[in-house]
């Protein structure tokens, strides 16, 4: 990556939810940044804090949740940096859909069924004073073309229900990129789509970041999806980033036992050669993630970890560099014991 300054810097982010069961520490000391033109994947199982992290960046946390600490500095090229954690709602509203675009898993719930897709794209432009109504409608067709929709001039007049799931997700991308955001946040954008459509959407996102230099925070629970797609991977567990680094390094030489265990669970890694007979059982991870209202002392993964030491249950492992040259860091104190060939 070029040494340009990052589009987003997240530093020591903590998010709490005040619930009847107590204070839920949904996000705990999360730190990362994303450079312009970079694709960073945030992966983890459900409840690990991926969506809460992304909602906080957009200032869309539900009322019972709040940022209990940390900074979220958004710094698009040519603009003054803004700390999204403390910025007033008026500023956040301008940034949402402007400097930061977003797409979600289910495009149908985010699209207005009573408006044509052209009007919805145009609305995003007008709202952010990028164009007047007429110019905006003209640009809507260009945007549909940019996300690979054929006959865009006819399609601007279509309603969401007249489109397939894959096309609706493209419309969502068109809306999200309408104001040329410096950062795009995509929360499970392909989870509801089949593999062929999924491949197309990933291709469009790759092309957009190449052409526009926009940074992408890509959230998914699907590890095998991101190896070829993302530049860097961050693995979340129980509200913490437990491992991060170059996508290929994390996938082929994980330095955190949780990442390794998660990769080992994937059926795709256990398809023997045909004729070998039935492959063995899939490896599994014992137990389940901790209750975030009652975080255990020490490493959050210790009670499920096959390498846990006594020190793991008392200390509080920080994210530490395992391979500085590749920016590969882990929140495991025993990472040196993991063979580098693991998972290969």
């Amino acid at each position: 990556m070029a040494a340009s300054c990052p589009a987003l810097v997240v530093e020591g982010l903590n998010i709490h939810f005040h619930t009847r069961r107590g204070v839920v520490h949904a996000v705990d000391d999360v730190t990362f940044d994303i450079a312009p033109g970079e694709i960073v994947a945030l992966v983890g199982e459900s409840g690990s804090g991926k969506s809460v992290t992304s909602l906080s960046i957009m200032g869309l946390l539900p009322r019972i949740g709040h940022i209990a600490g940390g900074r979220l500095v958004f710094q698009p090229a040519g603009h003054a940096p803004v700390d999204l954690a403390t910025a007033p709602e008026k500023v956040l509203r301008k940034i949402r859909g402007g400097g930061i675009g977003m797409i979600f898993q289910e495009p149908m719930t985010s699209l207005n069924p009573a408006m044509t897709v052209g009007e919805q794209i145009a609305e995003a432009l007008v709202l952010h004073h990028q164009a007047d109504r007429r110019a905006a409608l003209a640009r809507a067709a260009d945007l549909l073309a940019a996300v690979g929709i054929a006959r865009p001039r006819e399609r601007v007049g279509s309603y969401p229900h007249q489109m397939s799931g894959g096309m609706r997700q493209r419309v969502m991308i068109a809306i999200a990129i309408a104001c040329r955001p410096a950062l795009l946040i995509a929360d499970e954008p392909t989870t509801a789509l089949d593999v062929t459509t999924q491949a197309q959407i990933l291709e469009i996102l790759q092309r957009l970041r190449r052409d526009t230099g926009m940074a992408i925070l890509f959230i998914t629970h699907n590890l095998s999806l991101v190896e070829a797609f993302a530049d860097r991977i961050m693995v979340m567990y129980a509200g913490q980033v437990v491992e991060c680094g170059n996508a290929r390094d994390v996938m082929t030489a994980p330095r955190h036992p949780y990442t390794k265990a998660l990769l080992d669970c994937l059926p795709v890694r256990h398809l023997g050669r045909p004729g070998d007979g039935a492959p063995p059982e899939l490896p599994t991870i014992p137990g389940h993630p901790p209750d975030l209202a009652h975080r255990p002392a020490g490493c959050a993964y210790a009670m499920r970890c096959d390498r846990a030491h006594d020190a793991c249950r008392t200390g509080h492992p920080d994210l530490q560099m395992a391979d500085a040259a590749h920016g590969h860091a882990t929140r495991c104190i025993a990472w040196r014991e993991m063979s580098v060939a693991a998972g290969a």
Binding site: E45, S46, H221, L223, A261, L262, C265, L266, P267, A278, E281, L282, P283, T284, I285
Partner: peptide, 15 residues
């Protein structure tokens, strides 16, 4: 189901 839970259910079905 999550990946790690999927593996357990797949093993169960095979068993």
């Amino acid at each position: 189901l999550d990946v790690s839970v999927q593996a357990k259910v797949i093993n169960l079905l095979r068993g």
